[in-house]
Amino acid sequence: MGIIKAVQLAFEYIRRDEDGNVEGITRAIDGVDLEIKEGQFIAVLGHNGSGKSTLAKHLNALLHPTEGTVYVDGKDVREADKVWEIRQTAGMVFQNPDNQIIGQVVEEDVGFGPENLGVETKEIWERVEESLKAVGMYEYRKHSPNKLSGGQKQRVSIAGVIAMHPKCIILDEPTAMLDPNGRKEVLRAARALNQVEGITVILITHYMEEVIHADKVFVMDQGKVVLQGTPREIFTRVEELRKLRLDVPQVTELAYELKKAGLDVPEGILTKEELVEALKSLKK
């Protein structure tokens, strides 16, 4: 079994009026089955309200499934006494960098997770050092988080999760509030974690460019997984993605339009270099 396995997962938000009567039920997740292997870099795509964040919150037991379940490293999220183990196994980074930093000094914030786990003082310091180095924020360890840029804050948040030694990190739209430079910084840190440390990364996003390097992509719409496959497989299906109100990367779209206009370019082009090569070979 993979590190994360969802079985017929469903979740309903129940809206109540002021007297507590049920006003309506929104099915945010509707029968999701997915399996993620250890060490993979996974991307979950979807526009706002597709249920991708709700899914993320199930992967470390922040939300309780209405139906079905999720197994994290073989542990069932429905079991109340496994909650802390699950949250340690699957760490989570949220969207807003300001609302997830607890410490007043960078190093204290990174130490917050290990402190909660009851790690010895000496080991906390070792973990803080290695985690800050892993995201390239070690020289900022004595700084106040308020003085950092958005990208730096998110890297500190990632370090805070790594310090808990998780097997898997879920990044819930970590770049949504950042400028392009900050986005690059955070993505680079996430990819390094996956490649160097071998941590499974699940990146939830609606930016297409961010999923190109993923091993596998899940596309969500209205609470269901509607497409899954490698980025190349996904991006060959331009028409379907458009229907889901998702844009493909510019290069892919250009290649698609060229193909539609009659040029013989291969499907699912992801990078500029690939397109250049394809056009060159066409000229010959």
Partner: peptide
Amino acid sequence: RRANDLAMAMEARCYRGGEFRTKMKP
């Protein structure tokens, strides 16, 4: 809203009150 987010972030990082907690800077 921030308080709500922060509470969730703290829970995600296994915060469960003062018990079992160790200190980074005792």
